[in-house]
Amino acid sequence: MTSYYEASARERVAGLLDAGSFIEILPPQERVMSPHLLQLDTPAAFDDGIVVGEGRLGGRPILVAAQEGGFMGGAVGEVHGAKLTGLLERALDTRPAGVILLVESGGVRLHEANAGLIAVSEIMRAVLALRGAGVPVILLDGGQFGCFGGMGIVARLCDAVIMSEEGRLGLSGPEVIETTCGVEEFDSRDRALVWRTVGGKHRYLLGEAAEIVADDMAAFRAAAIAALEHARPDLSLAALEAEHAGLGARITRFGACRDALDIWRDLGFEAPDRLPLLEADAFRALAAGRRA
């Protein structure tokens, strides 16, 4: 098994796609870097923390982007965001079988906060424009920095989110909430609390993640191929009314729950405190028929 969690963005691209199929667009030697970081005396990266390009997955042509969490927590700046938007728009022209986003991001890069925020908005527009044109967008979330801030919103604009238990998905990170509201609101150092609130298992049980896999490159690859196969982008009124009903029902049913354990108990798990201990396969089997 090769850990997805431990891998770099480049290792993920290499491990996920068909061997030798990846061709990078604007590779590091093009040196398309952030001038804003340099202006603030902060080291910049040759690829601005995101790898984009073309390749094949299960024999089908795809476009792929991978954020590097090791560089500024995968945060979105002007160049970083424009590479992702440009890739999504490229797919409008080339109509691949899908776009695969290997996301690992804390959200907007503060050193260029305005540019990052606007870039995330442009990514959001581009994702929905692409899905509207019938090209599916599949997002993988299993890296060390999770998927937060604007990228957490982007995730839920996609056709499917594939997570490992180690993946985390949310809007405001636990540290941000603790810093702003106090440790009694969200103790970011309570790892069990963090993982059962924003981790892959809870997201899967809520229906936010379409699939949960072990922290294994091959498992992510297989799930991405399957998701590509089954995705049918649908942004119709009927589809959004159904989503609306589901989100409304979630507030009604779980709105008073204080902890993920309360939600899991409500979903029919007799020993919810044991769920975090299960391996992905056993967890998936137990969760069958019980997801919200």
Binding site: G170, C181, F186
Partner: peptide
Amino acid sequence: LSHRDELLG
């Protein structure tokens, strides 16, 4: 910013 909002997605 709240634990509950994150819990509910």
